[in-house]
Structure formats: C-alpha cells, structure tokens
C-alpha cells in the first residue's frame, strides 16, 4: 500500500501530458509539502472533473483517508469510466480496503481498457507492457480477495448447517432415549 505514491509518478509520466497540468502541479506541490488541507481545496477547485477526481484521490490517499480516496476515484469514474489511472488507483484502494466486489469490478474494467490500449497502433511497447503487468497484478489480487469472500461465505454456510445438524442429532438422541423409557421397561426392575 505504501509503495503506491512511488509508482504514481511513473504512471503519470506514462500517461503523457494532460490538460490543466498547471493546476494539477500546484496540487501536487502542496501535497508533497504535506499541506493536505490546502491541496484538497485546490483539487476540489479544478475544472476538469476527471482531473479533479484524480487529484482528490491522491491528496486523500496521501493524507491517509483511504475510504475517502476510493470514494473520489469512484466519483471520477462515473464521469470518465475508461480512465485507466482512476481505474488502477481505485482498484488498488478497493483491494487494500478489502472491498471485494468493487475491486474485482474495477480490476476487470482496467484489464479491458489495458487490452484496448495494447491493441492501439502507435502506443509505445514499454507503456502498454507496464499497463498490462499492472493490470495483471491487480486482477490477480482482486481474484484472491474474491476467493477469500467465497471461502468466507462457504464457511458461514458450513457453520450454519453444521450447527443445525448437531442440534438435530442431539434432539434425535434425546427423543430416542425418552421414547424407549416407558413404564413396561421400568417395571422390570423393582426398587426397594
């Protein structure tokens, strides 16, 4: 989780120049100085909704509000559903926060976008390879999380059925014991 900021700069470089970089750079500079409250204000004022979500996600992530950062990422994806950076960062956060269904959905969407990117002519091989590797890791982690959820659901089912079966067995045993203890059998052994 903590390596995320280190690779973000790589991803941003791979994405190439984007509109409104000047404002984003201001946000990044404030964020790097640890002035998160100011950086967040600046990010919220950005015009481009995708850029706004990206920057809010980064500021909130660096300030340790992981759930808030994921919320910002998902808001941005409503406006730009195929934004690879938002998909990647949101998938990463959803996985770290163990939000299995969101993580799997985002990782799959990221994989689709990355496949599209790789098939486009003119995209540098190193860029598409980086995204392919990143996407594969995300999908793998999201699938593992989904598997854990399935195990959890399976264990819950086993526990409920196991408890029910145990109670039924005890009940059956008690019924057997009480039904067999009629007066006829008791009469066989007279007491003092």
């Amino acid at each position: 989780m903590m390596v995320l900021p280190l690779v973000t700069s790589v991803a941003l470089a791979l994405l190439g120049p984007a509109g409104g970089r000047g404002d984003s750079q201001d946000v990044a500079a404030l964020r790097d100085q640890g002035l998160y409250a100011l950086a967040l204000k600046q990010a919220q004022a950005l015009d481009d909704p995708t850029e706004r979500s990206r920057e809010m996600l980064e500021v909130l992530y660096h300030a340790g509000d992981l759930a808030g950062a994921l919320g910002a990422g998902l808001t941005g994806l409503e406006v730009a559903p195929d934004d690879r950076l938002l998909l990647w960062r949101s998938a990463r956060l959803a996985t770290d926060l163990a939000a299995a269904s969101a993580a799997l959905d985002l990782a799959r969407r990221l994989a689709r976008e990355v496949e599209l990117l790789a098939s486009q002519p003119g995209v540098e091989a190193s860029t598409s390879q980086w995204w392919l590797d990143t996407s594969a890791v995300m999908l793998e982690e999201a699938l593992q999380l989904g598997e854990l959820r399935e195990q959890q659901a399976g264990a819950r089912g086993r526990a409920r059925w196991g408890a029910l079966l145990g109670l039924v067995l005890l009940g059956a045993l008690a019924t057997w014991a009480t039904q067999c203890s009629g007066p006829a059998q008791q009469g066989g052994r007279a007491r003092v």
Partner: peptide
C-alpha cells in the same frame, strides 16, 4: 473448517458466533 484463514477482524466477526457454535 468453519473459519478460513486470512480474514480481517470485522470480516471474521460474522463467522465467530456460527463457527463457534458448530
């Protein structure tokens, strides 16, 4: 059998009562 490994505390909470009963 009733408590898979690798769960967080809150994720395991739902399994604790049924799992311990079973």
């Amino acid at each position: 059998t009733f408590m898979p490994a690798g769960l967080a505390l809150d994720e395991a909470a739902g399994l604790m009562l049924w799992g311990s009963l079973a």
